[in-house]
Nucleic acid binder design. Structure first.
Lengths: 135, 135
DNA sequence: CGTTTAATGTTATTACATTACATCATGCAT
DNA sequence: ATGCATGATGTAATGTAATAACATTAAACG
């Protein structure tokens, strides 16, 4: 029943670009790809990204200064998610893990720390790239 | 017997500033504090930071674009560490947790992903700030 | 010594992100 | 309908983070 406001034109454009991309894009990458759609300034992209991220349908990768469309449907309720980022092909695989979540919770609780957001990002080499060195 | 090369002048200056700071500093914050010591350009700081981070005696906080001195002695061997970052006082509390580590390992292993580095950063409110709202 | 190598210094540039302010569109109360 | 409030957009300028390219200096060592 989460009847939420529909996305605006710019937000749809940005989300579309992210969904089509196999790997994370920086705000300026996105802007570049939307020049032909009339977007001209970084702020137009950053504004759209903010909404998408707040909605939970896009994630920001802190270690990359880049953004990806959420891969799961129900990211919002699933709690925190993590990413495995391949240094060779550039792809970012999103994952959810209940136990990891719980462990992070308990670590916070031990310190009486109230976490509002948690970033988990591993960088390395993905299975694909391990097999076929170049991509 | 890890007889390692001694730190250079700039590296010592940067590390000193980080150790004295109660919270993470950006490279430009550091530069600002070292103007009086003769440092003039960002690169001087970034170069020193790179060495310190590679040595494992300083950490980069991806979600803050900032740096902190390592709080433990033996960070290098302890494996990956995480941070709890308070949005009010700005302090970053470092932590190690074996089980968290293991869990991250196993998640990677499941996907046949070979992680070289993992970022874990929670932001929220620390125990201190919860008690005494302003700091 | 002179040569190699690592560290530094300096300038310029690129990449990432936000502030400030003007404009436009929409909804809706009178 | 008219006028006002609100939210979305557009645009320019600026601020902040990071690196490239190249010149210079210092230390190591045959």
């Amino acid at each position: 029943m989460t009847s939420t406001k529909p996305l605006t034109a710019n937000q749809q454009l940005v989300l579309g670009v992210l969904k089509r991309s196999p790997s994370p894009l920086s705000a300026y990458d996105i802007l570049h790809r939307l020049r032909n759609k009339g977007l001209k300034a970084p702020l137009q992209v950053y504004r759209a990204l903010k909404v998408l991220v707040d909605l939970g349908i896009t994630h920001r990768l802190e270690s990359l200064n880049a953004f990806v469309a959420c891969s799961g449907e129900n990211c919002r309720q699933a709690g925190m998610s993590g990413f495995m980022i391949c240094n060779l092909c550039g792809r970012a695989q999103e994952f959810y893990n209940r136990q990891l979540n719980d462990k992070l919770q308990s670590i916070s609780a031990d310190q009486e720390f109230v976490a509002s957001h948690t970033v988990v990002e591993s960088s390395g080499i993905c299975a694909q790239c391990k097999k076929t060195p170049v991509n």
